[in-house]
Amino acid sequence: MVAVQYYLLLSGAIFCIGLFGILTRRNALFFLMSVELMLNAANINLVAFSFQYGNLTGQVFSLFITALAAAEVAVGIGIILVLYRNFGDVDVTKATTLRW
């Protein structure tokens, strides 16, 4: 039996790897992948805690998060596509018409 702490450590590590990717990568597609990592870290937690508490709420919700992640990627790819058509690149730092 693996204690729930190990799952938490795994998910924490994945979350932080995703955050690192977001902070360092300029390519918008890498950004999307990093966000997926962070969402899946949440999924690991939900499934682990679902077993911990003996109810299925977390497992079912993790399925919904997976579906939402797909929807988010669909919109994200659309935006990256128009970004590429306008700026000729998928580099998020190339778009500098506006200031932050």
């Binding site: 969402l39 949440a42 937690n45 998060i65």
Partner: peptide
């Protein structure tokens, strides 16, 4: 997208 990922992780911890 970043903040929704953080939000989801927060929800998972509250569930925890």
């Amino acid at each position: 997208a970043l903040s929704s990922a953080i939000f989801a992780y927060g929800i998972s911890l509250v569930y925890g």
